[in-house]
Structure formats: structure tokens, C-alpha cells
């Protein structure tokens, strides 16, 4: 520090340093101020760079596919037998869509019901109990969900349905529903809580019961937030890999029934990627499937943004 410091009493030291050493210290502060501004900017740009890398690396390899087979074959053929050079991904695409739809069909009523319970009905101590427990659920690794599905849910489904194997869309959808439940529930919860109190008061003043207030006033007012929550749940369901792999059966065919062993985009990638050469049509096809996943996620994020913008305007 600056030279005058040595003859000061310890009590005054703190103050004196700030004043006496100020030119040096000041310039140091200015320097760190500038440096760190650039560091923070660099950090956020690094994030964008990562996104660029994702699109570049996956997209580049994916597009090599269409130099080898026609897009029509890839998107509309149900025949996936890589050993015979048949790369039709239609079955995986349809399965992914139907799995997501089935998951939401199970998860949305339950999650929104839980959100209503948390936000409108439950007493305070119960809210303070339910919310952390749901947070806990988010932390459980997806592989553990898959393992539970495999060891607990599948035997149960086998007994309940009389099917031989039990794996397929229904098992995967049940596991996924439990996984997206906290996501949808917490965000819908926030959306419902942020509905202004005066709406409810007005409805109660007209003599509504709580049920009527919930369904005719609160839920319509929180609609956009709840839809955003559902879409966020969708992105999680579409991209989930390990939990699905363990219960869906991993057979490249169209899931015609709830118990047909089948495969979705994510599960097929993770099952096959380690067996293929980097410069093969097979690898390109798998990358194209990953690229599709990427596009679906981006599309869903876009929808959430549009919803969010409209909500702010209203």
C-alpha cells in the first residue's frame, strides 16, 4: 500500500488507507472494473458460442445424411434396418410425438391439480411441505426413474395387463409423467399465485363457490402461464433419454399399442451411437435425429417466448 501508512495508529488505518493510497487504489479499481466487465461479457458470449457449437457440430454431420439418402426416405419411411442401408426414421418421430402426448395426457391434469391445491386450497403448512418435496423430485436422477420403472413398474404392468413384457409407450409415459410433474406443477403454481387477488374477491362477492372461482376465474386468468409450464414439461419429455431407454423396449418399430416394444429418437440414439463408425450413413442418420430433437426444442422455446410476450402485453 502507499507509503504514509506506517505512521498511523491502527484505529485510523482503515480510513487513512482509503484516502491516502487512493490514486493507486483508484486506478486498480478502475482496471478491475473494466477487466471484469469484459469477463462478464465474455462469459455470456461463451454461452452463445456453445449454442453455436451444438448447432454447428450436430447440424454439419446431420446434413451429410442427405448426400447419401433422400430426405423423403428418412422422414417418411418406417423401415429402420441400418444393416441393410434402410434409414427410415418415421417410426421414431411418430413414437416420440405419441409418447409426449400420452405423457402430457397423464401429467397435465395431475400437475395442474397439484398446482391448484398448492396455490388456492391447501393451508400454509401444507404448501410449505408440498413445494420442497416437489423440488426434491426434480433432483432425482433420470436413470433412477428408469431403474424404478424397470424393477417396479414393469412387473406391476405385466401383472395388471397380462402382457408378456410390459414395456412400451404406457410404461415410458408413466415414468415420464412423474418426471415432468414437478416442472409443470411449480410453474403453474407460480402462474396461479400471480393472478391478482381482486379477481378472486370479485368472484367471491358474486357468491361463487371456491370451485367456481378456480375454474371460471383463476385458471382462465393463469392460462398462458400454465401453457408455458406444459410446454416446458414437453421439452423435458421430448429430450429425456435414460429413463425412457430402460422401459420402452428398444425395438425400432411403430408403437401401435400401448404395450408394443418400440423406440423413440433419444433412446435410439443412445442405444446405437456407440456401435457406429463416425463416417457412416448410420452415424449421419443418428445425428439427423439429434438435430430433429434440437429443432423441436427450439420450436417449443419459441412458442413459450411468444406466449410470454403476449402475457406482458395483456
Amino acid at each position: 500500500m502507499g507509503s504514509p501508512v506506517h505512521n498511523l495508529t491502527s484505529r485510523a488505518k482503515g480510513n487513512a488507507v482509503a484516502v491516502s493510497a487512493s490514486p493507486k487504489r483508484h486506478s486498480r479499481h478502475l482496471l478491475s472494473n473494466t477487466l471484469f466487465r469484459y469477463y462478464f461479457l465474455f462469459s455470456i458470449l461463451a454461452l452463445c458460442l456453445v449454442l453455436g457449437l451444438v448447432i454447428l457440430f450436430i447440424g454439419k454431420t446431420a446434413l451429410l445424411l442427405f448426400g447419401q439418402i433422400s430426405p423423403l426416405d428418412f422422414f417418411f419411411s418406417f423401415n429402420w434396418t441400418p444393416e441393410e442401408e434402410a434409414f427410415g426414421a418415421a417410426a421414431f418421430i411418430v413414437n416420440t410425438l405419441s409418447l409426449t402426448a400420452l405423457t402430457l395426457l397423464i401429467a397435465v391434469p395431475v400437475s395442474v391439480g397439484m398446482a391448484v391445491l398448492c396455490a388456492e386450497i391447501a393451508p400454509k403448512w401444507m404448501k410449505n411441505f408440498i413445494r420442497p418435496v416437489l423440488d426434491l423430485l426434480v433432483g432425482i436422477p433420470s436413470i433412477v426413474y428408469g431403474y424404478l420403472g424397470l424393477t417396479v413398474l414393469l412387473p406391476f404392468l405385466r401383472r395388471a395387463s397380462g402382457e408378456g413384457l410390459g414395456d412400451g409407450l404406457l410404461a415410458a409415459a408413466l415414468v415420464l409423467a412423474l418426471m415432468v410433474l414437478p416442472t409443470i406443477c411449480r410453474i403453474s403454481d407460480d402462474a396461479i399465485v400471480s393472478v391478482p387477488r381482486k379477481y378472486r374477491d370479485a368472484a367471491y362477492a358474486l357468491g361463487s363457490t371456491r370451485l367456481q372461482v378456480i375454474f371460471r376465474v383463476v385458471l382462465p386468468a393463469a392460462k398462458r402461464g400454465i401453457i408455458s409450464a406444459v410446454i416446458l414439461g414437453m421439452t423435458r419429455a421430448v429430450g429425456e433419454t435414460m429413463a425412457v431407454v430402460m422401459v420402452i423396449g428398444n425395438t425400432p418399430q411403430l408403437a401401435k399399442t400401448l404395450f408394443t416394444p418400440s423406440s423413440v429418437l433419444t433412446s435410439n440414439i443412445v442405444m446405437q451411437i456407440s456401435n457406429v463408425e463416425f463416417d457412416s450413413t448410420w452415424n449421419y442418420a443418428l445425428h439427423m435425429m439429434a438435430f430433429l430433437l434440437l429443432l423441436i426444442s427450439f420450436m417449443l422455446i419459441l412458442v413459450i417466448r411468444i406466449l410470454g410476450r403476449k402475457r406482458r402485453e395483456v
Binding site: 455470456i44 454461452l47 452463445c48 456453445v50 449454442l51 457449437l53 451444438v54 457440430f57 450436430i58 454431420t61 421439452t235 421430448v238 429430450g239 429425456e240 433419454t241 433419444t266 440414439i269 443412445v270 451411437i273 463416425f278 443418428l286 445425428h287 439429434a290 430433437l293 434440437l294 426444442s297 427450439f298 417449443l300 422455446i301 413459450i304 417466448r305
Partner: peptide, 27 residues
């Protein structure tokens, strides 16, 4: 634009990051 980047990145499925890592480190 930065915000769109962050949101898009957070929606990228984990398996895609796996493929990216595979492409960068293994290839």
C-alpha cells in the same frame, strides 16, 4: 438475442450435449 441463446441452450436435450462431446473429443 443473448436471452434467446440462453433459453435455447437450456432446452437442448442432454443427449445432444453427449453427441457434441463425442464429436469434439472422440473425433
Amino acid at each position: 438475442a443473448l436471452r434467446i441463446c440462453v433459453e435455447s441452450l437450456s432446452s437442448v436435450p442432454s443427449i445432444v450435449f453427449g453427441l457434441l462431446g463425442l464429436a469434439i473429443f472422440a473425433e
